[in-house]
């Protein structure tokens, strides 16, 4: 369906300008290989700056790779980038082109520019507005909507005019749970009823675990793992995660707590520990009794998430904070 081999893209170094320090060259795609199969929801997961959007822009013909090949449905998109528009629907991160249009006109115009005639574009516009629950705001310009609604309206535009491949760059940013459900229902319907394939960029771990069939984890322009969410989590199945939240200062005078401090990743009053289950039981026993318990605000014991996978694979801890868990 979509095959990527040896993709390399380097952004050239920026010279220093007044007020802007020089930036070294960035290898945003560093030898990426990917296979997306027909009918699956495939995710690209990684923190900000991992190279997700750069990869997606090369897959959609917007950016020419320095090296490597991109084939979508049998078409070479490095040689023929203009074919991408006739094979896939793309939801980018920016809505400037549609901001001053009403939701209905944005969807209709996009449909017409995707080659539909007026009647078909209007029929699809009405269907997708109904499907995504945008009926009440259909007559309002995008820029007067909330961030989540605007995102939903952009998705509506991306879905008008059927395509076998949908490339969605962080489709649910800023959305409330109702809107998110509408998005996933719409994506699922296109896959189930029409066999569409969906390539999805996300930095939301929970979303990645629940909606993706397979996920490629990106880190500094490389794919560091690619499997089903369950398969990835099996990599770290021998560990569990313990989160401790202290009321104030951690009770470091308790020797066991001081020992935990060594292994913990501290972020404010929260400590995150990854350890074997029996160690975790011991740690929980320590903090739920005596002086440590008095200082404890909250604790959770959880099986590993994709975030833990990311860290176990050598992802950077500062990067992991770019992954959203809510």
């Amino acid at each position: 369906m979509c095959t990527v081999r040896g993709l390399v893209k380097t952004y050239p170094a920026a010279r220093r300008r007044r007020g802007v320090p020089a930036a070294p060259a960035v290898r945003a795609s560093d030898g990426i290989d990917l296979d997306v199969h027909r009918g699956e929801v495939f995710g690209l997961l990684g923190p900000n700056g991992a190279g997700k959007s750069t990869l997606v822009r090369q897959l959609t013909g917007l950016l020419r790779p320095d090296e490597g090949s991109v084939r979508v449905l049998g078409h070479d998109l490095v040689r023929h980038p203009e074919r991408a528009a006739r094979l896939l629907g793309y939801l980018g991160q920016d809505s400037t082109a549609l901001d001053e249009l009403t939701v209905a006109l944005a969807a209709e115009t996009t449909g017409r520019l995707r080659g539909l005639d007026v009647r078909a574009a209007r029929a699809e516009r009405d269907a997708v507005i109904e499907e995504l629950g945008l009926g009440e705001v259909a007559g309002r310009p995008l820029k007067k909507l909330s961030g989540g609604q605007r995102r939903l309206a952009c998705l509506a535009a991306a879905l008008v005019g059927e395509r076998p491949l949908l490339v969605l760059d962080e489709p649910t940013t800023g959305m409330d749970p109702v809107a998110r459900r509408a998005v996933w229902a719409a994506v699922d319907r296109r896959r189930a009823e029409r066999g569409a394939t969906v390539l999805l960029v996300t930095h939301n771990v929970i979303e990645a675990e629940t909606v993706l069939d397979r996920v490629a984890v990106l880190e500094r322009g490389r794919v560091i793992a690619c499997d089903t969410p369950a398969g990835l989590k099996a990599l770290v199945a021998d560990e569990v995660r313990v989160d401790l939240v202290w009321r104030g200062e951690p009770p470091l005078e308790v020797p066991e707590v001081a020992a935990l401090r060594e292994a913990a990743l501290a972020s404010g009053r929260r400590w995150t520990l990854r350890m074997a289950p029996e160690q975790a039981r011991a740690a929980i026993a320590t903090v739920t009794g005596g002086p440590a318990f008095a200082a404890l605000d909250d604790f959770t014991l959880a099986t590993p998430s994709l975030e833990d996978v990311y860290l176990a694979l050598g992802g950077h801890s500062e990067g992991a904070e770019g992954l959203v868990k809510a």
């Binding site: 369906m1 095959t3 081999r5 296979d35 199969h37 027909r38 084939r71 449905l73 049998g74 078409h75 074919r83 006739r86 094979l87 017409r112 520019l113 995707r114 080659g115 005639d117 007026v118 005019g161 059927e162 395509r163 076998p164």
Partner: peptide, 25 residues
């Protein structure tokens, strides 16, 4: 599907959707 040799899995290119024509666009 993953084992299908590349580009054998994509042997016949899929049909391209219609282009938007100049005047309607």
């Amino acid at each position: 599907a993953a084992e299908a040799p590349w580009p054998g899995g994509d042997a016949a290119p899929a049909p391209l959707a219609a282009r938007a024509r100049l005047l309607p666009a």
